[in-house]
Design a binder for these strands. Structure first.
Lengths: 343, 343
DNA sequence: TTGAAAGCGCTAACAT
DNA sequence: ATGTTAGCGCTTTCAA
């Protein structure tokens, strides 16, 4: 059995309180006893039981991370990268990370997140994929648990960290128009997510700026997965459109789209230019490397954790809104129409 | 405040014990009272506090997942996919997943895993990246916590789930020799991991079988990252070797290697064939699609959780060893030397 | 079938 | 500077 505080107290002929204080660095315990306590702790390998601590203090030093729901799921590289950075930031701040994965049927996904929030097992939550009308918000507020979204929420008194979705998308599409593209397809995200909306707006904005009329035939929605990007691209091509550029609302869909294009004998960027959004590590290694709007994924993770911890500690009442820059990064997948090289 | 068991008891004029029993489906509580209790629970939204339950029962219904250490980290698609599947399996079985990420400096990574094990916050652990000589094993045994490795361990009384690393690799390299390749490079993994060893053995085995002498000039080690694969490939080429095939010990390194090859004007598969190992989703979308040895990542996740839960419940004393199949899957990145098409 | 009481291991007033 | 005493919310003997 693991030694307990009581064991320590018995051995040292002290009370539990004193031992507890000594261990937590309480200034009103004698230097000498503090040393004795610490030595013994090391000797017998005592470490406090976080469960018991949690029950006593009502703090768990754990943050919940609500990973996205099906179909996107945890396998999306963007979320995995985010998870990694947020996880590291949390650990560094002394917090553990409890995952709230989706349930099998997808339907219960949201309730799983909400359930975790109500379970007293976490001090706060990071949520992903904010919906335009997100039912989780109400439930979370009711649970009086600090939380922060990765992505802008409609509700203004909710904290979030996001990136310049609209601006970044506009820049990307402008990049295409500048190269001389006019028939630019848009692979939008799911209609119910705020990120989809913002990125689509950026697309439209850039078209307006370039004097290109919006052609809804060139727009299709995907679900932010490779398969979704593939299907959306295929759909647009099936409609009989000729396309010279594609703006995909995330990198994963862009990669799926590239696949669909090649399947039809189109080469990239000679026949069609493709740009994505996110800046996932993998996109650099596609052939050709994917032009994309880079989000600072590491910083998004760090800032999300930072905000959440402030909210938890009460250092900040919230709501906190942070927008990080997203910049268009040209790469081999985007070139002038007809195959001119871009450098 | 969340309602407690006491609240429930007060309202119903029952004792905590009875309410607790009713909720846990204890057969010796009257049907009528059970119904009353359940109704009230729903009405006032009572859910048991898992922390308190944990303290009382010494079970947390949580499993710890020790994600790999730097430099591979959580961003490796293979681990992310694994994490997703294992996470889903765990949730389905009623367990939460607590992440034990690496620490910033990398050095403390192992101790972070071990620390979690000793913290009484998890009922068991899934560990990844077994080392040939893995210090964590001793510490975990001492903590008397059930655990299972993803990957074979040297220590035979440790439970693990793995795939046919050696056989799969041999098949892959044999695939290359059959196509007519003789100068086959090997991008090995870090020397201290069991998986690296097994896959390298498979490579050697296939060479022997094909009567090709092992040329150490064609072997270099990478760290299982893209950058590592890139560097290892570059190193082999810098040595002045002519290479017609490459076996990379994982997909991510294979993708990095493809990059290095192309940078030197070599095309795939016309000039060089490349095969990887893992079968990550992304590899299908590379250009050309990556030939690889497919591990059943989903099943690895499920089985790891399954074994761990058996160990936790005591249904099985362990050690349990499960080897899942790994099959070579030809694809566009592997073709006969000189550019013949493979179909 | 139900209740009373004693913990699980810790923290935090409130004494001394 | 240290000890005493209650809990935190739950499960689980042991009684009734």
């Amino acid at each position: 059995m693991r030694p307990t505080l009581q064991d320590m107290a018995n051995i040292l002929n002290l009370s539990k309180s004193t031992v507890s204080r000594a261990l937590s660095g309480d200034p009103r315990v004698a230097e000498a006893t503090r040393v004795r306590v610490e030595c013994l702790a090391v000797q017998i390998g005592y470490t406090p039981n976080p469960i018991a601590q949690g029950l006593a203090t009502r703090r768990t030093n754990t943050i919940g991370l609500a990973v996205p729901c099906a179909p996107r799921s945890l396998s999306d590289p963007f979320y995995l990268e985010f998870l990694g950075h947020a996880g590291n930031a949390a650990m560094k701040a002394g917090y553990s990370v409890l995952l709230s994965a989706e349930e099998e049927d997808g339907a219960g996904a949201h309730s799983a997140h909400v359930e975790l929030a109500g379970s007293a097992r976490v001090d706060g939550m990071i949520l992903t994929e904010p919906k335009i009308r997100d039912e989780r918000v109400e439930a979370l507020k009711r649970a009086r648990l600090p939380f922060v979204f990765l992505g802008m929420t409609r509700d203004q008194d909710v904290s979030w960290v996001s990136c310049e979705n609209r601006l970044g998308s506009a820049e990307a599409v402008e990049g295409l128009t500048r190269l001389g593209h006019a028939r630019i397809a848009c692979l939008a995200g799911p209609a119910d997510q705020t990120a989809s909306e913002a990125r689509y707006q950026g697309y439209c904005e850039a078209l307006v700026k370039a004097g290109i009329p919006l052609d809804l035939n060139l727009v299709a929605s995907g679900d932010f997965t490779q398969a979704g990007g593939y299907a959306a691209m295929a759909e647009i091509l099936e409609r009989g459109n000729s396309v010279s550029g594609v703006f995909a609302s995330n990198d994963v869909m862009a990669l799926g789209a590239m696949y669909a294009l090649r399947e039809r004998g189109l080469s990239i960027p000679e026949d069609v230019s493709v740009v994505g959004f996110d800046g996932i590590a993998f996109a650099q290694f596609s052939t050709p490397p994917l032009a994309t709007v880079r989000q600072p994924i590491d910083e998004l993770g760090r800032v999300a954790v930072e905000i959440l911890i402030e909210l938890i500690r009460g250092d900040n009442q919230g709501p906190v809104h942070r927008v990080l820059p997203a910049r268009f990064e040209p790469a081999g997948s985007a070139a002038p129409p007809g195959g001119g090289a871009l450098r």
